[in-house]
Each structure stands twice: as C-alpha cells, then as structure tokens.
C-alpha cells in the first residue's frame, strides 16, 4: 500500500469542486436577480424623478440668480408649469440685421456647396455634421432675410422653451438610465453604481444646462436670434445625450471592472 497524496497538502476539503465550465459568449446570459432588478427600477425611477421635481423650482431660481450676476442687464420673470413656478432671468435679445442675415446665408450656402463637393478633404462624418449645421443656418438666415418681422419668438419665449427643454432632459435622465442600467443585477453594489451614475448625470446636466443657458442668452443678446434654431436643433437635447451615454458607459466600465472578478459571478448559462 503506497501513499500518493501530495506531501505538502493537508487540506481537509473532501469535495472535489463545483463544475467550472466557462460560459462561452454565444450562450451565456447575465446573472439575473429579479428582486434587485425590480428594486432598482422602482428606486432609481421614482426616487430620482421625485428628486428632480422636488428640486426643479430651486434649480431654476439658482440659475436665474447666477444669470443675473453674469449678465447684468438681464431681468427676471417666472413661468407657471403645471403646479411649479419656474423663475428665469434673461437679457433682451435682438433680431439680426439684413446684412447679418445675408452674410450667414452666403456663408452657409458656400459651406454646403464646399462640403458636398467630391474634393472635400474632411472625413465624411465630420462633413455630415457640418452640413447639418450649415443647413440649419441656411434655413435660419433665409427666413430672417425674408420674414424678419414675422419671427414668432422673443427672448422670453426662448427662455421658457429652454426651461421646458431642460426640465424634459432632467425627467428623461432617470428614465433612460434607470431602465437601461437596471439590467445589471450582479450585486447590490449595482444599485449603488447605478444610483451614483444617475446622480452624477443629473448634476452634470444641471451644470452644463445652466452654463449653456447663460451662454445662449448672451449669444441672443450679442449676436441675434439668427442662432436660435441652432440652439435647439444642434446644441439642444442632442448634446445632452453625449454625457448621458458617457455616464452610462462609465457605469458599464465600473460594473465590468469591479464586479467581474469571476466569470461565474457575472454570467450564467442561457439554455
């Protein structure tokens, strides 16, 4: 009778091991905790939506006072939205002169012509964006050249529209991030990561949205309403989605880096 055990091994474990089979990516699914999923959905959506609505009036009040400090000639008004009173400060804007409109028309037209030329050396994705910007400015300048007096908005309309747009973005952030991030239910830490991401996104949005507002009001005052369409159609909610997706990817990265210590903790077999 011979002993063949590894001499240094004194382990008392009698079980061999649990089957460890790598979950190939074609058939794996994510570990799913139904309760954590529902908890995240509920908490992330309701808590943050509540927070947004609760802080909305204060946010716009602060923004209004900062606007007033930066743009000293601005005046303060308020707007009733549902049961909320949203305060804003805005400087008086101005209509473009015929000369300005004409210059923008020529510039945008020239840009469009140059960008659509085959010899355009810019990468197509950059050209595509520039074409879009040029197109918006072309429409805008064309309008102001022909129907200057009929422009339906004042700086106050702009401010109200911006307020509503920003409110829309605030409401949308917990919704879109809550729905997309709740999918990850690997650990209770996910709830923390996801809540942190939404919070960070909301903070970023309030800072970015605020600065953007003051910047826009300044542009309308100094450089006329000809830029107003661009403020909504180019630099509007489209830009908000950059940081929303950016924070989403950051949260994904945190999840992948911190929680994926072992494959088994992350995936399960999907069949």
């Amino acid at each position: 009778m011979k002993s063949m055990a590894y001499p240094q091994d004194y382990s008392k474990i009698s079980k061999v091991e649990k089957p460890v089979i790598g979950y190939a990516r074609f058939g794996r699914v994510l570990k799913f905790n139904r309760y954590l999923f529902l908890l995240q959905l509920t908490l992330l959506l309701f808590v943050f939506e509540f927070l947004v609505i609760f802080l909305l009036e204060d946010y716009f009040k602060v923004l209004s006072s900062i606007t007033k400090r930066v743009l000293e000639d601005s005046y303060t008004k308020s707007y009733k939205f549902l049961k909320l009173t949203l305060e804003y400060s805005v400087s008086q804007g101005r209509l473009p002169t015929l000369q300005e409109s004409f210059i923008y028309l020529i510039l945008s037209l020239l840009s469009l012509l140059l960008l659509t030329r085959k010899s355009n050396p810019l990468p197509k994705y950059v050209s595509a964006w520039l074409m879009y910007i040029a197109f918006v400015y072309f429409v805008s300048s064309f309008y102001f050249l022909l129907f200057l007096e009929k422009f339906p908005y004042t700086e106050r309309d702009f401010a109200i529209l911006y307020l509503l747009q920003q409110t829309g973005v605030f409401i949308f952030i917990p919704l879109v991030l809550g729905l997309s991030l709740s999918v990850f239910t690997f650990s209770p830490l996910n709830l923390l990561f996801n809540a942190f991401t939404i919070l960070l996104t909301l903070i970023y949005s309030s800072v970015f949205g605020g600065i953007r507002y003051i910047f826009f009001v300044y542009v309308l005052k100094e450089f006329s309403y000809i830029h107003m369409p661009a403020m909504f159609f180019i630099f509007g909610p489209l830009l908000d989605f950059i940081y929303i997706v950016s924070f989403y990817s950051l949260c994904l990265y945190m999840t992948l880096r911190l929680l994926q210590k072992r494959q088994e903790a992350f995936y399960q077999w999907g069949f």
């Binding site: 994510l30 997309s180 990817s249 994904l252 992948l256 994926q260």
Partner: peptide, 8 residues
C-alpha cells in the same frame, strides 16, 4: 452596451 457586457 448590454451586448458588450455579454461579450465581456
């Protein structure tokens, strides 16, 4: 994003 997580 979910597909990227599935791909690891």
């Amino acid at each position: 994003g979910t597909a990227l997580v599935l791909d690891g």
